[in-house]
Write a protein that binds this DNA or RNA. Sequence first.
DNA 1: ATTTTTTTTTAGATTTGTCTAAAATAATTT
DNA 2: AAATTATTTTAGACAAATCTAAAAAAAAAT
Lengths: 222, 222
Amino acid sequence: MVTNFTTAEENYIKAIFHLQQSNENVSTNQVAAELNTKAASVTDMLKKLKQKKILNYEKYQGFTLSEQGNTIALTIIRKHRLWEFFLVEKLDFGWDEVHEIAEELEHLTSTKLIERLDTFLGHPKFDPHGDPIPDSNGKMAMRKQINLIDLPLNKLAEVSAVASQSSELLELLKFKNIRIGTKIMVKQKFAFDHSLDIKIDKQNPFTISQQLAQVLLVKVIV
Amino acid sequence: MVTNFTTAEENYIKAIFHLQQSNENVSTNQVAAELNTKAASVTDMLKKLKQKKILNYEKYQGFTLSEQGNTIALTIIRKHRLWEFFLVEKLDFGWDEVHEIAEELEHLTSTKLIERLDTFLGHPKFDPHGDPIPDSNGKMAMRKQINLIDLPLNKLAEVSAVASQSSELLELLKFKNIRIGTKIMVKQKFAFDHSLDIKIDKQNPFTISQQLAQVLLVKVIV
DNA sequence: ATTTTTTTTTAGATTTGTCTAAAATAATTT
DNA sequence: AAATTATTTTAGACAAATCTAAAAAAAAAT
């Protein structure tokens, strides 16, 4: 198995992996948007990654990561999250300022380095954002369930449980079209009344109250 | 002042800086040899660096780093040595296996990262090879480090650095049992081939070649 | 079932860093 | 001082990753 990829290739692999978690089918345009590039550039890279057996791809027919592509994506994510953990735990960065730096660190090539780092950090299972860190075989722990209130902005999550079964709550959930498994993203938080502007599916964002948000438990989607 | 350089540019700046420490005049061919590339490629880069005001350069007339070029070289060296310190002190790497990894780490761009790392490590003054680590202003603790060739007879000194990291050299050093911190004394110098008869620890004296002596830097023990 | 719109792909250009081969210049030898 | 050798530079080509503009294919609308 080839294990040498350019930073550009790795960024495409990672972007496609992330998009595949939420969408069943990933499109050329979505990848272009995710990477702030143009559709033509994406097509070029798709051909290259197909050739390297990272992608299953037939032109105009869509694409998915191959087995190998998935493995590579997980090792990149492992590196990203371990470095984020390091930055927050050891270097006292805030959890909201480590992403960009980790984007660089994740492309370092030494496997020995990342294994030593993992040991040094005590084999952490979750990164500072609550996302699970894949182990060296690509396995990750079950995601943590968190309160919707605590979900960072613009992070896609999935409703995993509700903290009450009252009929009043169920009535409201039905009205808002929220159920277990609904994909959800917080677009804005209002300090005044702690209400949240959220987006579900492809609908326009709408506001929910603090009371409702408090009983919704979600799991971040990789 | 521009502070954005590619990895390739940084490698040239660093190579020229290092060559300038030993040689008065640095040549295109020397840079090519140092970077395992061709003279033509070096010329191309010299033009680019001149244009970016990193180099004083007129064709066929040689070149030197500008004030700014020197500053940049020192920040790269600072990063390299701080990461080496981290790898050895925190991740338990041997001092002879960190160079390559640090070659990658030195090109990370975040200044905040390197300052936090410096604090985390306790502002070390010397890296695991005994080389001084420039501070954030480019100043480094100067050590009266001299070449073993220049060490007077029967004066006790301590190996403080080696002027190359090649695996061939490391192999030889391992075989001769010489490492950073080894106490060393020159017992005799042979004019014919400039070889030296040296004594380390409590062993019997033995001979080392001019080539080896030239890359050993020592600090006289007071 | 056409037409229109959107998405994806191709064709051709650009930038960065590299190369080889040849030309220009400098250094050395005779 | 001229000839030879070595070094440096130029000229032109190439691979990677990107772009714009146009063509091809698929999806949506009429």
